[in-house]
C-alpha cells in the first residue's frame, strides 16, 4: 500500500520548461514598472513575486524563458528567480487548464466533506488531483488551508473563490463553468454582498 507518495520530497527538482521567447506586453511592463516603485530603489528584488504573477498571467505558467525575463527586469540571476518559483505553490511551471480548481483539504474543510468534493470533481472531470483534463479546461489541485474555514468546503477557482460547495453541487459548477465561463463564479460571499449592495 502506498501510504505516502514516494515522489514527495522537498529536494525534488524538475527543470523548468524552456518555453519560447518571452517579454512582457507593454501593459504588463507598465504594471511592473509601477510596482517596483513600492520598494526602495536598491531593493528591486522585492518585486519578484509580482513580476512572476505578471508572467504567469501572460502565458498561463512560468517557463525558463519567463524566469530569465523576470531576472533581467529585477536585476538578479535566473537561478534566484527559479529559487523563488520552486518554493511558492501558486506558480505553475507546467501548463494548466483555463480553470484551476483548488480544493482545500485541510481540517475544517475536511470535517465538512472536502474529500467528497474532490472525489466528485475527479469523477466529473475524469482526472485525479494534480492533472489537467484532455480539453485543457480544468486542472484539479488539492491545496492546504485557504483561510475560509467558516465557508467550508472551499474551492478556489483561479483567483476567485467558490464557497460552501456541497459535493452534490459539483456537477452544476463544472457545467456552469463550461457553458458560462467566469460568469459562473458566483459562489463567493463577495458576489452576494456586492449584489445586495447594488440593490440597496
Amino acid at each position: 500500500m502506498d501510504y505516502a507518495p514516494a515522489k514527495f520530497h522537498k529536494s525534488a527538482r524538475e527543470l523548468a520548461e524552456p518555453g519560447g521567447a518571452f517579454a512582457y506586453t507593454p501593459e504588463h511592463q507598465a504594471k511592473f514598472d509601477a510596482n517596483v516603485k513600492c520598494y526602495p530603489p536598491d531593493q528591486r528584488r522585492s518585486a519578484i513575486l509580482f513580476a512572476l504573477y505578471l508572467a504567469q498571467r501572460q502565458q498561463g505558467y512560468v517557463t525558463a524563458a519567463a524566469m530569465r525575463h523576470v531576472a533581467e527586469q529585477i536585476g538578479c540571476t535566473p537561478a534566484e528567480v527559479e529559487d523563488v518559483v520552486s518554493y511558492y505553490t501558486m506558480f505553475f511551471t507546467k501548463p494548466v487548464g483555463t480553470y484551476v480548481l483548488n480544493v482545500c483539504r485541510t481540517l475544517s474543510c475536511a470535517l465538512r466533506g472536502a474529500e467528497r468534493v474532490t472525489a466528485a470533481l475527479s469523477a466529473e472531470l475524469g482526472i485525479t488531483p494534480g492533472e489537467t483534463d484532455p480539453t485543457g479546461t480544468f486542472t484539479l489541485i488539492e491545496v492546504e488551508c485557504l483561510g475560509a474555514c467558516d465557508r467550508a468546503p472551499v474551492v478556489m477557482v483561479n483567483d476567485d473563490w467558490h464557497e460552501c460547495l456541497a459535493p452534490e453541487d459539483v456537477r452544476r459548477l463544472v457545467e456552469d463553468l463550461r457553458t458560462r465561463g467566469p460568469a459562473a463564479l458566483t459562489g463567493c460571499h463577495l458576489h452576494k454582498e456586492k449584489a445586495a449592495e447594488a440593490t440597496s
Partner: peptide, 12 residues
C-alpha cells in the same frame, strides 16, 4: 506615510 500591499504566493 506610504502603505503598500505585497502579495504572497502560497506559503504558510
Amino acid at each position: 506615510c506610504d502603505v503598500y500591499v505585497h502579495r504572497g504566493a502560497g506559503a504558510y
